[in-house]
């Protein structure tokens, strides 16, 4: 089985991010919050401080490593929530059609009409900052794309011979949706979810940057960027490394998403073997 180079790069980048997130306490040199020491304030990157230190003398490397936990949690969990909502609505709407389809379509259009970041901002403003409200805000605002894709796939798949055959063979609606429609639309759904994860990580960064996501002193990549913006000329490493972390993770997810599309198609699978 031959994988594209970009898929491998994407997979490695994402796996690296997951690895760093999982083993953050062991990889970090100091405590990301408490490890402040004003004697070491604003040290540039060196052998001792790999990514430099901030104005409070906290190790940026340790903070980036711990930030991976928050950023990835937000990316994965919120996108999972999005996918579940989107696929459930889209699949049932496409398969059953009728008034339910109209309702779901109206909802989707509504969601698409409101910029999701603004919507998330509004939810955050109500719920207050914090990881849980961030997950809720991002999890509820980005399902319209997976919903659209699931609905479109369901519409085209339901006229396929095997779906008709399943009906003739006595499958119930739920079983048809789960065994016949869902596996056949999983490819594009996974692709869009992987891309959406990158989007969610960016959205977390944006919300934290605006002070509505993760509050200092806890490190998330977005909040680190937000704190660093005053010192961008005097201590650029404060913004470069969290920025690089976001960039590489999102790039990895996007490359992976593209690559997965090819792998998940059983037709192309056999062409390779």
């Amino acid at each position: 089985m031959k994988l594209g180079t970009s898929t491998i790069i994407g997979g490695v980048l994402f796996a690296l991010a997951i690895f760093v997130g999982l083993f953050a306490p062991w990889l970090a040199h100091t405590d990301p919050v408490m490890g402040a020491n004003l004697m070491n304030a604003e040290e540039p990157p060196s052998w001792i401080w790999w990514f430099g230190t901030d104005a409070q003398g906290r190790d940026i490397y340790s903070r980036v490593v711990h930030g991976a936990r928050i950023s990835l949690t937000v990316g994965i969990v919120s996108q999972l929530v999005n996918s579940v909502i989107g696929v459930t609505l889209g699949l049932t709407a496409g398969y059953w059609g009728g008034w339910w389809d109209d309702v779901v379509n109206a909802l989707t259009n509504l969601m698409l009409a409101i910029p999701s970041l603004i919507f998330a901002l509004a939810i955050m403003a109500v719920l207050g900052p914090g990881l849980t409200s961030l997950l809720i805000a991002l999890g509820l605002t980005n399902w319209s794309f997976s919903c659209r894709i699931a609905r479109a796939s369901a519409l085209s798949l339901k006229s396929q011979g095997y779906v008709q055959a399943a009906k003739v063979l006595g499958y119930g609606d739920l079983r048809i949706m789960i065994t016949q429609l869902l596996p056949n639309m999983l490819g594009p759904i996974i692709v869009i979810s992987t891309l959406g994860m990158g989007g969610a990580i960016l959205a977390e960064a944006a919300l934290s940057f605006l002070g509505l996501g993760i509050r200092p002193p806890y490190p998330s990549w977005g909040s680190m960027l937000s704190e660093a913006r005053d010192q961008i000329t005097t201590a650029p490493w404060l913004s470069v490394f969290p920025g690089l972390a976001i960039f590489l993770t999102v790039l990895g997810l996007n490359l992976l998403g593209d690559g997965l599309r090819d792998i998940l198609d059983p037709q192309s699978r056999s062409r390779r073997t």
């Binding site: 095997y162 063979l169 596996p183 999983l186 059983p266």
Partner: peptide, 24 residues
């Protein structure tokens, strides 16, 4: 009706190419 279909009345189709689920 559903319990009859596939169990006591079964059907095969013209197009064996499309009557099977491609991802299963």
């Amino acid at each position: 009706q559903r319990a009859l279909r596939g169990n006591r009345i079964a059907m095969i189709f013209q197009e064996p190419m499309t009557a099977l689920n491609p991802v299963s």
